[in-house]
Design a protein around this nucleic acid. Sequence first.
DNA 1: CGGTATGATTTCTG
DNA 2: CAGAAATCATACCG
Length: 367
Amino acid sequence: MDDQQRLMHSQAMASVVPQPGAYDAMQQPGVGDPDQRKQEIGDVLQQIMTITDQSLDEAQARKHTLNCHRMKPALFSVLCEIKEKTVLSIRNTQEEEPPDPQLMRLDNMLIAEGVAGPEKGGGSSAAASATAAASGGQPESAIEHSDYRAKLAQIRQIYHTELEKYEQACNEFTTHVVNLLREQSRTRPIAPKEIERMVAIIRKKFSAIEMQLKQSTCEAVMILRSRFLDARRKRRNFTKNGTELLNEYFYSHLSNPYPSEEAKEELARKCGISVSQVSNWFGNKRIRYKKNIGKAQEEANLYAAKAASAASAQQLVQAVSDPSSPGSGYGLPSQGMGGQQGGMYMSLNGDNYQGGDNSVGANVQSQ
DNA sequence: CGGTATGATTTCTG
DNA sequence: CAGAAATCATACCG
């Protein structure tokens, strides 16, 4: 394209420069004499006044002769070149815009939330798994999840529809402008770069609108999330039976109340809660037991007594979750310091309670 | 309604 | 990253 322009340009120069007379043809007649000038102005005015009377054909013919003027392409080409060298080149320097960090942030968030990016399957499952990882994703929360997902899908659909609308409008508008400029390029010099620049400007404007859309979508997602996050905090106590089972495990493993992953799974299954809920429970239980040993002591005794009278099935469970045989309180320390902590819990209650591992033995003995 | 119990979350640590 | 500790927020009970 550049070559072509240069070629045109050189042709233009070749034809323009050596024939100064050509300019005379373009000059307004009667520049010198004031009287004549007045006369000319009057003529022009007259022409303008009567322009509506002129037939369309006549106007078209004039336009045509102008368009067909042999100097026209050459002049346009020169003017275009000048334009490019002045205005356009100045603008071009600031053309190189770095990717807007704000926009990138929004994009990333939308993708992370599963609004943008891959459709339904990947997106929503990613979002679901993210929430599931946080809450443990189990029975009742499943309802909330589906609700959350439905809302998210709604947002996503609106977002995509709007985005598409914008894109379509942008394309239509761009095409329109480009066509207009192409049309105009017949009657005034328009460099290809100028068109490019115009397109870029339009794109920029539309991307600003797009950013607003993204922003409000992000806000909507945030509001949705916070609502569901709050809802998630709505807790319900575990079932009596579940708490019973957890307490049984805790007090029978008091010397080392750190259930292994498998034990947690087992407990979770039995109590109808998630593994992370089991972890929460043990975390809370340990800290609260330690904080209030006196009171917990009663509970410990209670559960010790219970354990004593428990059926052999209970022993079986313990044997399963505690594979390293009787006297195995230290069998499954989740941290390297099982001995130490076991000692701590042991020393706290050693007198009144035999300790979990021994309790099996005690049970056996008592039976 | 107020106080306690309790499940969940956050922050910090090794 | 699991667990301790602190904290939050709701459930539950007298």
